[in-house]
Nucleic acid binder design. Structure first.
Lengths: 365, 365
DNA sequence: CTGAAAGCGCTTACAG
DNA sequence: CTGAAAGCGCTTACAG
């Protein structure tokens, strides 16, 4: 029984000497385990485990010996093994789409940051489509025993929601609401935001007002539109045009251009409320670059989100700000509350206030 | 020994009936396990495991019975338990910073997409600083037994690299190179890109040329500068100005403004090469919005990356394109090669070609 | 093809 | 405070 000679597989130069040589295989060094540390320190595995469990009862001397041994061996606890016995992975699944809209990278950054602070990690999934395999992929993520799952701007099938609920894993919808039982929700005051935009535009004297939706079935877009329309109605002004930008910058640009090209100039909108900044950039490109219109003199534009690019010199977009930082904080706080073992994990619905940021794409009031 | 009555803890309505009632505790239903399925199907756990292991030998009838039982019970394999016994988590750690530069969200999206296709998942870490706790956090991510780790635009301490190497976990540096042994590297032909930018600018007749670096110790920025300077030197033109934008848009804008304000107008640069697009937007804002200069007539600008915003109407930035999709593909291909058990996991260095995209911030040649 | 058994690296009642 | 032992949910030689 001789070992095959294989020079191309590097033998690590630091195989722990305290491990049985029985395997004898080449390959990477097996990591040092809790048992190794126990042996080295001359204590039980329980003792080692306890010294790495905050709040567990270990004697001062035991702890010291363990720590010293662990240090000498370069011991790193295996989070996977811990997960298997505690049933807590300290991972949360984050599902996100539309990373081209800067709102979401920002959210990812803030959420991971906060979660990391609490000792949690992010298992990421990018799901472009809400299509059929969205569910299957969610199920995949659940196999990793995530402690919770947050869905950013994505619909959740009610079947999956029920599944999570039964399994006791909290789910939070971020920047979207849904009529699904048992899920938490963190969103902005979207209706209020729509109202803010409408009132502002009305006060500037705009009367030929247009709205661009994101996706017709997205709650976020619907709510913004509802608030916007209600305010318009209250003022007695009808909508001049409405279109759908699919949350895509390119689509928004094309749709805008087509709308103008198909209409007589004297019927052109003099103001736009666009369901998010990302599409508003496309609208502005159509207006200024393609149609050679002057903004805000010929036509005003208000977006939603206040992503970083809205402040860039090339756009200076007036917009309704979503406070993503507060939204992220609320999400994590809510999660921590639900992770608390002696807290009944009631789903919560939180809504964060919005504010209008005045910049250069509107006339001012 | 009566159970405490606690109405606030919901009792799930679908506790599996086939599980022992011994525990009797309330709380979420325990997920059905492989053992449950084995019992239900009247076979061994090995049989169940095998029917869920592609390529394992199971009888047709056994497989059918197992599948049927699994289906009836709604069985979902526990990836954590599998990881513990196979020592393969099918998770890769992705460390990223600067999510405000759209290049990285794009990379995250592409990388996750490809990885998902191969049955892998992304454990994400956002590490803003290369500071002291970067290492500790990397170590944390390693505790989750990731099969590999990819570092996007982040330095790697050589100590940590050695650690990974000893543990046999592949690490790949994405969009950065480093003189560390045993790590793979995926980057663009940065020097070539710098040369392209210089040659182009030179051909437009620019002679008072400036360069803005990202971070002085970032390999990417260094290489771009080196190629750029070499080409300038070859042409016998000296650099008019050099500054460092810290890979920050705001910093780039401030630094540019200050540079102009401190110099006599007749010594102002007539062309800029900026180490990435993200900073170039800041430079453009300074030039156009703050300094009221005309681009490209008064001053030309070339960036690097070709992020989506470079094509937006508000900027139309001429830039050296990095092919992030090919970079992502190369990364995943490289990883899959290293995961192949009968492949010696040699680190690789891959460099992807770049191309210059001409837009409206340069004069044309 | 199939099953009994050991093992992956932890944690956690349970006794002492 | 401490340790022996069982268990978390899988996989995988090893026999048959």
């Amino acid at each position: 029984m001789t070992e095959p000679l294989n020079n191309s597989v590097p033998v690590p130069d630091d195989v722990s000497l305290n491990r049985s040589a029985a395997g004898g295989s080449s390959g990477p060094a097996a990591a040092t385990t809790l048992a190794d540390v126990a042996r080295e320190a001359g204590v039980s595995t329980s003792a080692v485990s306890r010294t790495f469990t905050p709040g567990a009862s270990v004697g001062k001397k035991t702890r010291a010996r363990v720590l010293e041994a662990a240090n000498r061996l370069g011991y790193r606890p295996n989070a996977i093994a811990r997960t298997l016995s505690t049933r807590k992975s300290r991972m949360v699944g984050l599902v996100v789409s539309y990373l081209d809209n800067q709102f979401y990278p920002t959210v990812i950054e803030q959420l991971s940051h906060l979660l990391q602070q609490h000792g949690y990690h992010v298992l990421l999934f990018i799901g472009r489509d809400n299509g059929p395999d969205m569910d299957s992929v969610l199920l995949e993520i659940l196999q990793y025993q995530v402690d919770a799952i947050v869905l950013a701007s994505t619909m959740l099938s009610s079947g999956l929601a029920a599944h999570c609920r039964a399994a006791g894993i909290p789910v939070v919808l971020f920047n979207r609401t849904a009529p699904v039982a048992g899920v938490s929700t963190v969103a902005s005051a979207n209706e209020e935001g729509g109202r803010l935009a409408a009132d502002y535009l009305l006060r500037t004297g705009a009367r030929r007002i247009a709205f661009m939706a994101g996706l017709d079935d997205a709650s976020t877009s619907q709510e913004r539109e509802r608030g916007f329309m209600a305010a318009l109605q209250r003022a007695g002004v009808a909508l001049t045009a409405r279109c759908v930008g699919q949350y895509s910058l390119d689509e928004a640009r094309v749709v805008t251009r087509e709308l103008y090209e198909a209409a007589r100039p004297d019927t052109w909108p003099d103001a736009w409320f666009v369901a998010n900044d990302h599409m508003a950039f496309g609208v502005l490109d159509a207006l200024r670059t393609d149609l050679k219109l002057r903004v805000p003199d010929d036509v005003q534009v208000i977006g939603f989100d206040n992503v970083p690019q809205a402040a860039w010199g090339g756009y200076q977009l007036t917009t309704v700000e979503q406070d993503s930082w507060r939204m992220a904080q609320a999400t994590v706080a809510l999660l921590m509350r639900q992770f608390d073992p002696n807290h009944p994990a009631h789903p919560e619905q939180v809504v964060i206030p919005v504010t209008l940021i005045e910049r250069a794409t509107t006339l001012g009031v």
